[in-house]
Design a protein around this nucleic acid. Sequence first.
DNA 1: GCAAAAGTTTAGACAGATACCAAACCCAGA
DNA 2: TCTGGGTTTGGTATCTGTCTAAACTTTTGC
Lengths: 147, 147
Amino acid sequence: MQGITGQELSSKKAEYLKYIHMQGDVVKTTEIAAHFSVAPSTVTKALTEIAKAGYIEHTPYHGVRLTLTGAEYARFLIRRHRLVALVLSRHGLEPEEACREAGKIEQCFSKDLTDRMCTSLGHPMMSVCGEIEHDHCCCRTPGGDRR
Amino acid sequence: MQGITGQELSSKKAEYLKYIHMQGDVVKTTEIAAHFSVAPSTVTKALTEIAKAGYIEHTPYHGVRLTLTGAEYARFLIRRHRLVALVLSRHGLEPEEACREAGKIEQCFSKDLTDRMCTSLGHPMMSVCGEIEHDHCCCRTPGGDRR
DNA sequence: GCAAAAGTTTAGACAGATACCAAACCCAGA
DNA sequence: TCTGGGTTTGGTATCTGTCTAAACTTTTGC
């Protein structure tokens, strides 16, 4: 996945993708609908579009599963979320608040901005809401070495 | 202006309001349209709605002027912008970049979050793109004293 | 002082995101 | 196999932001 910008998916779709990633394997429409408190038909529509964009495989009536591209993108979304939460936690927010507020603002952060903050924070391993994986951060070459 | 949330105006309308504030006094439709590279009719429509919300007075064919409420809200928007830019500048961005990126993400920051960051930064007087006024920051009581 | 030019508004349309409901549809378990 | 729960389809709605074309107002130049 070269050239992520961070704006490939609208914010709601990105949230769905993150959720699918965190659930792992096959995820059902109803499960997503319940988690986000929306009607199943709303989810079906979003899923169809996310699938069209190549991030998930949607087998009608049987749920969705991330593609490789989708898994990679979801990891970026989660890394971004955790970096944003970390920044907020360093500006007076309690861990839980930082995580919640991050959820509201993260979609505005481009990949580039995310990577810059990551570098500036010294590529932290932990945030307030989980580990930060740097596999696909700008700070890694394909071989895994820091630049 | 009690109880600002930061989400009273959509992001484009907030940008227009900030611009009107920065131009001062009466601002014409065409001027705004040129600045934001949109059709004048787009601006008229937005202006009508901002006026309905009480932040500006719109005299058709003669331009707009901020109301007291609008001026106060615009000062909040500018303070928020500068605080966000300051945070970004402390995370590896050059002043100009920080200001530009702040413009993209600031609309997501609530009044509360803005005030928390302000406190955490020690109520800074300067950002990378201008002074920060604290007249209406949470850190001030009506008399002007820090809490 | 009036007509053309410049500026502005209105009206109608469209696109994208998100959401809903109702109806049709599929599938698995009793 | 039939039925019920889960899912999808199709239609509709709202919000935001945008445009074009036409109508209207103000200004300018002669």
